[in-house]
Design a protein around this nucleic acid. Structure first.
Ligand SMILES: [Mn+2]
Ligand SMILES: [Mn+2]
Ligand SMILES: [Zn+2]
Ligand SMILES: [Zn+2]
Lengths: 146, 146
DNA sequence: TTTAGTATTGCAACTTTATTGCATTTCTTT
DNA sequence: AAAGAAATGCAATAAAGTTGCAATACTAAA
């Protein structure tokens, strides 16, 4: 649950009309403690409101294009969406559990990475870095030991 | 082109029967300068030999399970396969071009990361870290400037 | 307020990538 | 040579996301 983000203002700042769907989706993503799949977002939204899954995909694409949210890869074939790094959400690596599929946000300091030298030497343009740690999460480890 | 790997020996060491398909696929992956998609591997193989694409997927799964190759995520929905880190192939980050979809291997030293402290403090098991840098590659940049 | 234009959404069909079940073939070992 | 195990092929299926187009909702001018 993020106390600091004014989601309506974020949409406005990106020159996007403020629609209920956009705001809801952004809130769902921003208030969740780990990145969500399109299906998870759709299911959450569907509990209260009738919405088409294509609309969800389209809004997600739009928010990604505007740099408001990030599209992250899991170890599976589904994308997950989380807030793009901003004042309230520092960039951070993620952990993907191969066993249960859960994705968790790691501490921003967990794996500090020095980008500056690469940014200077790389002959193209670097826009984003994604760090994903794979393995077995605490919960699955506990279960497997019982 | 990797001069150092004895692919037959790698398969043998993993207790896998040496089949033509396994060896060919491992050679294709090991000798390529960047990770390949299942389709690219299948197409390469198909040029010389009649093979079913399901067989390709199954061999890729097997080699991943044995830790011989790695399954990498691109910025798209396709997995790519490259040699797992070993004596001849140090772990390294990859660059994904959002424009042309190309994936290139970055220098192992390009983004050195300190894993030890996370490995010690993380309550689960860490098996693998994937670092993907996204942006626009040199070629696409050049084209867009013309 | 009407109306025209634009933006958003819904729906059905489609695409891509990968997986599954089961039959067939090939290999290994005795 | 025969039996059993391993590998492969083929057709069907699944999952996730995309596309085209029609319908609805919103916005702003007349
Ligand atoms: Mn996160
Ligand atoms: Mn590589
Ligand atoms: Zn888990
Ligand atoms: Zn490119």
């Amino acid at each position: 649950m993020c106390q600091h983000c004014d989601y309506a203002q974020i949409l406005e700042a990106a020159n996007l009309n403020l629609t209920t769907n956009r705001l809801k989706i952004l809130e769902i993503i921003g208030n969740n403690r780990s990145p969500l799949s399109a299906k998870e977002i759709y299911d959450t939204l569907s509990r209260n409101k009738d919405i088409n899954r294509v609309t969800v995909y389209r809004i997600l694409d739009l928010l990604v294009k505007k740099g408001i949210i990030n599209r992250l890869t899991s170890g599976e074939r589904t994308f997950h969406y989380g807030m793009a790094p901003n004042k309230n959400h520092p960039a951070h690596p993620h952990f993907y559990c191969k066993h249960c599929g859960a994705i968790e946000c790691l501490n921003p300091e967990a794996l500090h990475i020095e980008m500056e030298s690469l940014k200077k030497t790389y002959p193209g343009v670097i826009e984003n870095v994604e760090i994903r740690v794979d393995g077995i999460c605490k919960n699955c480890l506990k279960k497997s030991r019982q």
